[in-house]
């Protein structure tokens, strides 16, 4: 039972990484992308192939997985930049399906539907992180999520985060305010994809085997659900969303009713969650994170205020 709960938490972590990436693409840049499963698969297979066929260590495969996914993120981002809303969703969904089909059929590299087995377990300082024992793996996953959380939180609070939000709010206005919207949208895709690639690497060393069947459309939908349920534009919220969705997804097993509740039940429920959230609480459980400028505008900020006041009085002389 405890073991099972740990499993859920580990999957929460792996999916949270994907959801964090999705949040950049959808929550910040406002692009409805449905291909996290594709980047997830690319990351998984990068790790699987490099560590089995080429004998690389897990840690060496990680940056390759991240960069390769980012590269594919750019490749999908560039041609689809002009697409909006549902059109973008369909194009990206198609991309994820292409990835899965390639993996299914490129036998010489991916061994087709059989997939790749016997992926070596990662180890650090001689300590083997054995996924069967869960705790070690759990700690590793949590560290990954924490690192991703802090990096992306920083990103969101930087000028880049603000620029992405401007693009989401009004692309034409953002472009007219001097923001290179093309550049930022491609960046958003690359960054969102890279962290999904890392999630893929984790998935590979967690299940110690990869098969194309893992990387279906349902994965992308689950990730989108996590973001919508938790709250778009809020990294804490999407991690919470990941946990709730995983809990729901394993609920039948958790309460020992898996014989009575068919697995399709999950899919119905996810669809329902998306619909209900869109109608009743489009901002998600926690809602968007508001950037805090009190450091500037608050008591302490009054210093800047005075400076700015002086600036304006000197400007009115005619200097621009």
């Amino acid at each position: 039972m405890l073991n099972f709960f740990l499993l859920i938490v580990i999957y929460t972590g792996i999916y949270a990484l994907m959801a964090i990436g999705q949040n950049v693409i959808t929550g910040y840049a406002g692009m409805l992308s449905l291909c996290q499963a594709g980047f997830f698969a690319i990351g998984s297979y990068a790790t699987a192939i490099l560590s089995t066929t080429y004998g690389w260590s897990f840690w060496a495969t990680l940056p390759v997985a991240a960069l390769l996914s980012a590269l594919f993120g750019v490749l999908i981002g560039l041609p689809t930049l002009r697409l909006k809303g549902d059109y973008l969703a369909i194009a990206t969904l198609g991309f994820a399906e292409i990835v899965r089909n390639v993996l299914n059929n490129w036998d010489s590299l991916t061994r087709g539907p059989m997939g790749i087995q016997k992926i070596p377990m990662p180890s650090i300082f001689g300590f083997v992180i054995n996924p069967y024992k869960k705790t070690g793996f759990l700690v590793m996953t949590i560290i990954f999520v924490l690192i991703a959380y802090f990096l992306f939180q920083r990103l969101a609070r930087s000028r880049m985060g603000r620029a992405l939000e401007a693009i989401r709010e009004d692309e034409i206005a953002a472009e007219s305010m001097g923001i290179n919207t093309t550049k930022y949208k491609v960046w958003a895709f690359a960054i969102g994809a890279s962290v999904a690639g890392v999630a893929g690497s984790l998935q590979a060393v967690f299940s110690l085997s990869v098969t194309p069947g893992t990387y279906t459309f349902m994965v992308s939908i689950m990730v989108l659900c996590m973001v919508v349920l938790g709250g778009m534009g809020n990294f804490k919220a999407v991690i919470l969303g990941a946990f709730i969705i995983q809990l729901i997804s394993y609920f039948p097993q958790l309460v020992g009713l898996s014989s009575m509740i068919p697995p399709q039940f999950k899919q119905i429920l996810f669809g329902l969650i998306l619909v209900v959230m869109m109608i009743w609480r489009p901002q998600g459980l926690l809602g968007r994170e508001v950037r805090d400028y009190s450091r500037l505008t608050g008591e302490k900020g009054s210093v800047f205020r005075k400076k700015a006041k002086q600036a304006v009085s000197s400007t009115q002389g005619g200097e621009r």
Binding site: A166, D170, Y293
Partner: peptide
């Protein structure tokens, strides 16, 4: 064409 969900600042 303002960025509606962003603050004035």
């Amino acid at each position: 064409r303002l960025f509606k969900e962003l603050t004035v600042l």
